[in-house]
Simulated scan of single mutants.
Amino acid sequence: MLRLSAQICKQSLAMQRLPGSTNRIPTIRLQLVTRKMTQQSQKIEWTTSIPIGNKDKDKITALGWFLLLIPATTFGLGVWQVKRKIWKEQLIKDLDKQLHMPPVNLPDDLSQLAQMEYRLVTLRGRFLHDKEMLMGPRSLIRPDGVETQGGLFSQRDSGNGYLVITPFQLADRDDIVLINRGWISRKHVDQETRASGQNRNEVELTAVVRSGESRPQFTPDHKDGQVYLYRDLGRMCASSGAAPIFLDAVYDANAAPNAPIGGQTRVTLRNDHLSYLVTWFSLSAATSYLWYRQIVRRIPF
């Protein structure tokens, strides 16, 4: 375009220099045309010098914003685990407080016990030893709260055994409840080996209110109607005629020799929320860094 305009200018100047040339209007028109063409050519060169698409390239796409949900979600799960940790710690404190509160009398309405788990209650009656059941195997919880571990030949009888579950006929009513009298070793499974601990008189005892258990995953069915693997209140009550009430007897230092050892209450509350919240917050930090590196900075690996 510039060359063409330059040639036109030269031709116009040559025509002006010709002798006798008096027509100057075409020359002025040619100059105007040349100036417009020059401006248009300069405008085109100026616009084409700007990089096209840089702003679009820096924008975060819809997919990029969608991937931001990963660090945001894991951060939210970490916050939720913090709240769960606080709640579980407070629940454990409340249960421990209930275990150390003074015992109360067994309520007349036994259905109230469903809201009193881990509370101490006192009751009076007599054991029905002919309907005794076993639950286990279980390790022994000593009076100081330490749980023994069986397995070695020297510890097989002292650390591994069963819990004795005996129906208990209440003295002031016709109701029967289930009492976990405590732990016995394997060599004392037969009642004859612990005859001195089979008291058939009316007694008063203190026990901890417990609830039933669902069948744990991968746990096989019960061996028979006498040995149970967990607190299956449905089957226990059906075989003994007891109400669906389960109580753990407390430790009695004056118990007869070879009698079941009470105080076998396990507070079965797992508190793994600290490890969970560390995991979620770590995932949130890692995915946030990856999102910033890949989506915002566009830095390849």
Rank of each mutant, 00 (worst) to 15 (best):
L63C: 12
A171W: 03
L152H: 09
D174G: 03
Q81I: 06
V189W: 01
G76E: 11
E117T: 12
G150N: 00
T73G: 07
V189G: 02
N180R: 05
K131T: 03
A114T: 10
K131H: 13
K88C: 05
M101N: 15
L178H: 05
L68S: 07
T166H: 06
R173S: 12
E89N: 15
L163M: 14
P103Y: 12
K59I: 06
E132F: 07
H129L: 08
S158I: 09
L163Y: 12
V146G: 09
F66C: 09
P143Y: 04
D109N: 14
R138L: 11
F168K: 00
T166S: 05
G151I: 09
S139I: 12
V82Y: 14
H100D: 10
R84G: 07
M135V: 04
D157C: 07
L91W: 09
A72T: 15
Y162C: 02
K97T: 10
W87Q: 15
E117V: 14
D130P: 04
N180L: 06
S154V: 07
T148S: 12
D157W: 11
L68Y: 05
V189Q: 11
R84Y: 06
Q115M: 03
L140G: 00
P143M: 03
Q169D: 00
D144C: 11
H100V: 14
V164G: 02
G182L: 08
S158W: 02
D94M: 10
W65M: 11
Q98A: 10
Q169V: 02
L67I: 08
L91A: 13
R126V: 01
R126G: 04
M101C: 08
Q90H: 14
T122V: 08
Q81V: 04
I70D: 04
R126D: 01
L113K: 07
